[in-house]
């Protein structure tokens, strides 16, 4: 579903992403790990067509992002890192706008999509509140609702559980796991238990390169008995 081949992105003299390749199939939940500044967000921005890669290719459902960005964007749901949204709009207005841009032009269809997204992310109590007055966790949920709204075949989630309380973290994980059978999901995270809990595959990147691409079980088998964060540390030594 999502195919990444040799992506490269350079900022000035700094190579943020240095030849990353991987593939995510339907049913996969890919955990994207790496220390701060490793290039996770930059890779995601290239997959979702926000940044143009300096080299390499990203394909979604066989479509090249650079060649046909709009077609790719239709198939993707994307939660950017800090869950940006228009602060002066209410939750309902904002999701209504997203639905309209996503092609749900008729009032009924639009309302159905918005209601579904609100129910999935438990936003009902704040649906008429302006986004600027929401707490961080609720704002994060609005971003998640926005990504899910059109029930896309591929999801790219940049730290989806960041800022959520433990109950909501669990809720979001269950939700992702529940949807994953028909979807390809990439999620970045700094929480290693999250990887054990829901991911079917793990990619660890360090300084813009892939240093591990395997199942969580294989990752654990690298140092049987060790904690995942110890394995993570030894794999990303070069970043320290």
């Amino acid at each position: 579903m999502i195919e990444v081949k040799g992506l490269v992105k350079t900022y000035g003299a700094k190579r943020a992403v240095d030849g990353i390749s991987f593939e995510v199939r339907r049913g996969d939940i890919l955990g994207f790990l790496g220390p701060n500044g490793a290039g996770k967000s930059t890779t995601m921005k290239m997959i979702t067509g926000f940044l143009r890669p300096d080299a390499g290719q990203a394909l979604v459902d066989g479509i090249d992002v650079v060649a046909d960005p709009v077609a790719v964007k239709r198939k993707l749901g994307y939660l950017p890192e800090s869950a940006p949204s228009y602060p002066e709009m209410t939750v309902e207005e904002f999701l209504g706008f997203i639905a309209e841009v996503r092609g749900f032009r008729a009032t009924d269809a639009r309302r159905a999509q918005v209601d579904r997204a609100i129910a999935l992310t438990h936003l009902a109590p704040v649906r008429r509140q302006t986004i600027e007055t929401l707490s961080k966790g609720y704002r994060q949920r609005v971003g998640f609702a926005q990504a899910l709204l059109h029930d896309p075949p591929a999801l790219v989630l940049d730290e989806p559980t960041d800022g959520l309380d433990p109950n909501q973290k669990n809720e979001v994980r269950t939700l992702i796991k529940g949807m994953a059978a028909q979807k390809a999901v990439i999620l970045s995270t700094h929480i290693l238990e999250e990887v054990e809990a829901i991911c079917t595959r793990v990619i660890i990147i360090s300084r813009g390169r892939v240093v591990a691409d395997e199942t969580p079980a294989q990752l654990q088998a690298r140092q049987p008995g060790a904690r995942l964060d110890a394995i993570f540390r030894s794999l990303t030594q070069s970043d320290l």
Partner: peptide, 14 residues
């Protein structure tokens, strides 16, 4: 500044 440009241009709009 607010980063919504990333939201806008990852929606299906040119």
């Amino acid at each position: 500044r607010s980063g919504t440009i990333e939201l806008l241009f990852t929606l299906p709009v040119t």
